[in-house]
Simulated scan of single mutants.
Amino acid sequence: MSIEAKLKELGVTLPDAPAPVANYVPYVVAGDMVYISGQVSADENGVIAGKLGIDMDVEAGQAAARRSAIALLAQLKAACGGDLDRLVRVVKLGAFVNSAPDFTGQPFVVNGASDFMVEVLGDAGRHARAAVGSVSLPLGAAVEIDGVFQIK
């Protein structure tokens, strides 16, 4: 099954690849690798803001992380000229979670992105990962995730 067909089966429509909010490019293709800049948690209403352990719980954080993963796939689609089936595998995700000082559930929050990648991509979605707590994130976002992908 194509990646687009799997997304459709799951009821996921990829948005247009988000434009950068500062002086950087959204992705860099180097050989068979795509490096995608951090994607903040956002939906059709704008940035999903919040601080885990204060005004967001793990479940809400997982939903925000999933939205960051959707944005990563939107950027990947742009990097691949519209053909997501060029993806070989997700290599690594680097995740930052806007966290209260005593919040330690970052890995569980980031599972929202990791689980989504595996749900859509199967074994090609399994990846190395970092899940880091942060005192704040751009635009007050709850989550920001960057990614490294191998393509053909």
Rank of each mutant, 00 (worst) to 15 (best):
K6T: 14
E9P: 04
G11I: 10
V12H: 06
L14V: 05
P18N: 09
P18K: 10
A19G: 03
A19E: 15
A19W: 00
A19M: 09
P20V: 03
A22K: 12
A22M: 09
A22V: 03
N23H: 11
N23I: 00
P26A: 11
V34S: 01
V34K: 02
Y35T: 07
Y35M: 11
Y35F: 14
I36E: 01
A42L: 07
E44G: 04
V47H: 11
A49T: 13
G50I: 00
K51H: 04
I54N: 11
D55R: 05
D55T: 02
V58P: 05
E59M: 03
Q62E: 12
A63D: 13
A64Q: 08
L73W: 04
A74W: 07
Q75D: 12
Q75A: 15
K77W: 08
A78D: 14
A78W: 00
C80M: 08
G81T: 08
G82F: 10
D83W: 04
D83G: 09
D83A: 11
L84Q: 06
L87F: 03
V88P: 02
V88K: 11
V88Q: 10
V91M: 02
G94C: 06
A95P: 01
A95N: 04
A95R: 00
A95L: 06
V97D: 04
V97T: 06
S99I: 07
D102R: 04
D102W: 10
F103P: 04
G105K: 07
F108R: 13
V109T: 05
N111V: 00
G112Q: 03
A113K: 02
M117L: 15
V118Q: 12
V118S: 04
E119T: 12
D123T: 11
D123M: 10
A124C: 10
A124T: 06
A124K: 15
R126E: 15
H127N: 14
R129T: 12
R129F: 14
A131I: 06
G133S: 14
S134A: 15
L137I: 02
P138S: 11
A141S: 15
A141D: 04
A141I: 03
A142P: 06
V143E: 12
D146I: 00
G147T: 09
K152R: 13
